[in-house]
């Protein structure tokens, strides 16, 4: 059935079953491959997107549940001031290694900073512990979140 998505500020029409998770709609139906598949069970955070500004695992969120709420993906986060700050801090501190989990890390970090502009270590732990990085870039992720939180709007 046809569903209209509110995606990165645009309306996108897709013809998929209601129970299909947003992750596969993004990747396989719309070809937006920036959002990654990691575990399919909300255990790793690679598929993190924003729904109404909050970090959500898209692998378990069905299109039916989503409704017309606003979705932001890694392809769209750079146009928001907080997203741009996170991306810049990520590059300034050279956080990324293989990069596969980093779409999800950037999305989780951007949601954290939008809600908590000056996070402390405990805030960072709470917001980011759901995102696994197998390359082990956590030290720089923490430093980059702090850098982004200390910088004024780009």
């Amino acid at each position: 059935m046809t569903t209209v998505l509110n995606l990165n500020g645009e309306r996108k029409s897709v013809d998929v079953p209601d129970e299909m998770p947003l992750l596969w709609v993004l990747r396989d139906v719309l070809g937006m491959t920036g959002t990654k598949f990691g575990c399919g069970a909300a255990l790793c955070g690679a598929c993190t997107v924003h729904v109404d500004g909050k970090a959500v695992r898209s692998c378990l969120l069905s299109i039916g549940e989503l409704g017309e709420r606003a979705v932001t993906t890694i392809e769209g986060i750079g146009v928001t001031p907080v997203g741009a700050k996170v991306q810049k801090a990520w590059l300034d501190l050279e956080v990324v290694q293989c990069g596969y989990c980093q779409s999800g890390q950037v999305m989780s970090a951007a949601a954290l900073l939008a809600a908590t502009p000056r996070p402390d270590d405990a805030d960072i732990d709470a917001a980011m512990a759901g995102n696994i990085c197998r390359c082990g870039t956590y030290k720089r992720i923490r430093d980059a979140i702090k850098l982004a939180s200390s910088e004024r709007q780009p």
Binding site: G34, I74, G78, V86, W90, L91, G99, S103
Partner: peptide
């Protein structure tokens, strides 16, 4: 600065799993 990282923070980087082409099935 690394040359491969800018596209890894904006979703543009293409891993094997991101290969897409017309007529693709999954």
């Amino acid at each position: 600065k690394r040359l491969d990282t800018p596209d890894k923070v904006n979703g543009k980087a293409k891993y094997g799993i991101d290969a897409m082409m017309p007529g693709l099935s999954f």
